[in-house]
Design a protein around this nucleic acid. Structure first.
Length: 419
RNA sequence: GGAGAGGUGACCGAGCUGGCUGAAGGUGUGCGCCUGCUAAGCGUAUGUAGGUCAAAAGCCUACCGAGGGUUCGAAUCCCUCCCUCUCCGCCA
């Protein structure tokens, strides 16, 4: 959420942000709703002031056992007026709140401007693709040959996009998750959380998934709960409606969760194997920082995510997302795309974003700075990383001519753990 | 799911036979005084949001879990919902 005072003072910046982000928010409707709301609030305040002062007189007279019938009669009229205005006012406020939630965050200075992913900027490449002297298979063929996945049966019991990892595939998946968690805990200083996988509407609104993306989420109607599309939602919301001290910041959390996405409207796109799923595993990093630290924190988190790919010896590239590809709440995002040699393409495994105070305003997360002033803190998050495409890259990168796998050194101790 | 108790400021805790309560008292915190130092003590200040204002001060409004209602007037009365605790039931 953007500060309404800022919106009022800089409507052109907001208009441009809406355009650059390819959003449909109606700024003019918002501005006029704001005006109407303030007009009513002013009337309401004045009537209330009148009511309060006359109420004092009534109270005084009653205590002195004097007659206050005239005042009471007069206030009867004022009370009726207040009631009428109050109804209008609460309607105006509701409209205002609704419109405020449709205004996206503003892309930061330096974010490439563009409406779709074709204008994302490749910043750099890291690592080298390996050389092979045999015909490469893609991950699904490798998985089938090694019986790592059972996608047909996953589809049978849930639908396509709900994978079953079986045997060594399940074990590998679990070890990868554990490796990433421990890496962030031990080398990057995060604190681990295990969080609810179903969250309420307020939490989803706080991080900015709602109201825009309701169609993309699994909804449990009976309890009005949503399955989380990312751990960002529960983790970022843990401090909703709270005031932290500047001494508590920064806070760095990491959480593993399954993620659920309906992927409405993307049927038939990148569906082979594990490329696009309704349920997948992800290790997510979330930070709460003071505003002046968020730029540096973003760079650090990007590095934290990259460290995982480096540890696995994978080739990848770093993208700066253009304005139109930024999520609704983000003001700057870097994507990591890992190279999948069997499929011959780069696959997104991580998205690292700075939300500035946008989410903190929505979720009402504040902190008291060194001067004792209340301010909204900044939130960031990044995948560290999502497993399905990481799995694709690992299988395709480390396949052998005989169809077997030679996994990187880093993960082996985890797979060889004896009890 | 059933029965009961409760949700007040950073925290504890009064108020809850409606008006003088933005809210006693205490703790904590800031500033000052006092004091070899510390502790104790004394004084004083200390919520958030919106409006007015060039700004500050001041003033006005709202906020005692959330939303409605009764009333001239609600932290106080009524209704609905949410949450916490205790007991019972069910259950991994």
């Amino acid at each position: 959420m953007i500060d309404i005072k800022y919106i009022r003072a800089n409507p052109d910046i907001i208009r441009e942000a809406i355009r650059n982000k390819n959003e449909k928010a109606d700024l003019d409707a918002l501005l006029s709703a704001d005006e109407e709301r303030r007009r009513l609030q002013y009337q309401f305040d004045n009537l209330k002031a009148q009511q309060n002062s006359v109420s004092q007189i009534i109270a005084t007279k009653k205590r002195a056992r004097e007659d206050a019938a005239a005042e009471i009669a007069e206030m009867g009229k004022v009370a009726a007026e207040i009631k009428a205005i109050q109804a209008d006012l609460s309607q105006a406020n509701a409209l205002m709140d609704r419109l405020m939630l449709t205004i996206p965050n503003i892309p930061e200075e330096g974010v490439p401007i563009g409406l779709d992913e074709s204008l994302n900027e490749v910043i750099r490449h890291e690592g080298e693709p390996l050389n092979y002297d045999f015909e490469l298979k893609d991950h699904l063929d490798i998985a089938e040959a090694n019986r790592l996945l059972d996608l047909p049966r996953g589809a049978k019991i849930s639908g396509s996009g709900f994978p079953i990892y079986s045997g060594f595939g399940a074990r590998l998946e679990r070890c990868i998750i554990n490796f990433m968690l421990e890496y962030h805990l031990q080398k990057h200083g995060y604190t681990e959380l295990m969080v609810p996988l179903a969250v309420n509407r307020k939490a989803m609104t706080g991080t900015g998934q709602l109201p825009k993306l309701e169609e993309d989420m699994y909804h449990i109607a009976e309890d009005d709960l949503f399955l989380i599309p990312t751990a960002e939602v529960p983790v970022t919301n843990i401090y909703a409606d709270e005031v932290l001290s500047y001494k508590d910041l920064p806070k760095k959390f990491v959480a593993y969760t399954p993620c659920f996405r309906r992927e409405a409207g993307s049927y038939g796109k990148d569906t082979r194997g594990l490329q696009r799923l309704h349920q997948f595993n992800k290790v997510e990093m979330v930070r709460f920082v003071q505003p002046e630290d968020s730029q540096a924190a973003l760079d650090e988190m990007l590095q934290d995510a990259e460290d995982i790919l480096k540890a696995f010896g994978l080739h990848y590239r770093v993208l700066s997302l253009c304005s139109g590809d930024l999520s609704f709440a983000s003001q700057r995002t870097y994507d990591l795309e890992v190279w999948a040699p069997g499929s011959q393409k780069y696959l997104e495994v991580s998205s690292v974003s700075n939300f500035g105070e946008f989410q903190a305003r929505r979720a009402n997360i504040r902190y008291k700075d060194a001067e004792g002033k209340l301010r909204h803190l900044h939130t960031l998050n990044g995948s560290g990383v999502a497993t399905p495409r990481l799995m694709i890259a690992l299988l395709e990168t480390y396949q052998q001519a005989d169809g077997s796998l030679k996994l990187p050194e880093a993960i082996r101790p985890w797979l060889e753990l004896k009890i």
